[in-house]
Design a protein around this nucleic acid. Structure first.
Length: 225
DNA sequence: GCGACAG
DNA sequence: ATCTTGTCGC
């Protein structure tokens, strides 16, 4: 299926200019025990990084995590969240890869082809591509190489901090994808889009399952004296 | 055959 | 992704 759909990726568009229009982050959280998945889509104003729209969707886990097949696990619920938005998403920033994929069709490319939207992938970990460590300062980058082809970049978004791994999804160029990623990281390693979507899908999952009770999402809660 | 392997 | 503690740094 990936080999089929790959032909529909549009690579001759530079994509939206960084800092203009809207940028949307999508992310998914799981509760394997209860077989529940929650997705979130958060639309930011690209210039101010302020949230202008949000939407979530709840579903059942329909596919296991298999390296290389992440899209089949995450996309159904992500599509539902995007559909629930009350305005166009603009550029969509995914957790994971686009072209930097064993078959050149990662999550970001898959989502782009299904929706027709411009997409990029920003992953936290390298997949199976060789890359040198980018220089220390923020903005430094090193190519992700599939043989001789540059399928993405290891991009430093904070001085001296582990880089993120950027690749093109659909209807966007790699230089532009990296420029967007830098515009979305004024304070943290990960894009604001990813951070907002991550927080929202965890909140939605918790509200849908009504499990933990601790204070803030990622905290462990105060020990009882 | 074995290890690696986005989230 | 999820679970989970201590700890280093600003």
């Amino acid at each position: 299926m990936q080999d089929e759909l790959r032909a529909r990726i549009v690579l001759d568009e530079a994509g939206p200019a960084p800092g203009t229009g809207h940028v949307t982050g999508v992310d998914v959280a799981y509760d394997d025990e209860r077989d529940v998945v929650a997705a979130a889509a958060v639309v930011l104003d690209a210039a101010t990084l302020r949230v202008v729209a949000e939407a979530t969707a709840i579903g059942r886990i329909s596919f296991p995590y298999v390296p290389g097949l992440l899209a089949f696990r995450e996309i159904p619920t992500v599509l539902a969240a995007l559909d629930a938005l009350d305005r166009p998403p603009g550029l969509v920033v995914c957790d994971g890869y686009g072209l930097a994929h064993p078959r050149r069709f990662g999550l970001a490319s898959h989502l782009g082809v299904l929706t027709g939207l411009p997409t990029i992938g920003v992953a936290k970990n390298p997949f199976t591509f060789a890359h040198a460590g980018p220089d220390t300062p923020r903005g430094s980058a090193a190519p992700l190489l599939a043989g001789t082809e540059e399928v993405g970049r290891a991009l430093r978004t904070r001085d001296g901090v582990k880089p993120v791994f950027v690749s093109v999804g659909h209807r966007t160029g790699l230089d532009n994808a990296c420029a967007h990623t830098l515009a979305l990281t004024p304070a943290y390693r990960l894009p604001e889009t990813t951070r907002r979507a991550d927080a929202l899908c965890h909140r939605a999952l918790r509200e849908a399952t009504g499990q933990p009770e601790p204070g803030t999402h990622q905290s462990f809660g105060r020990p009882v004296d």
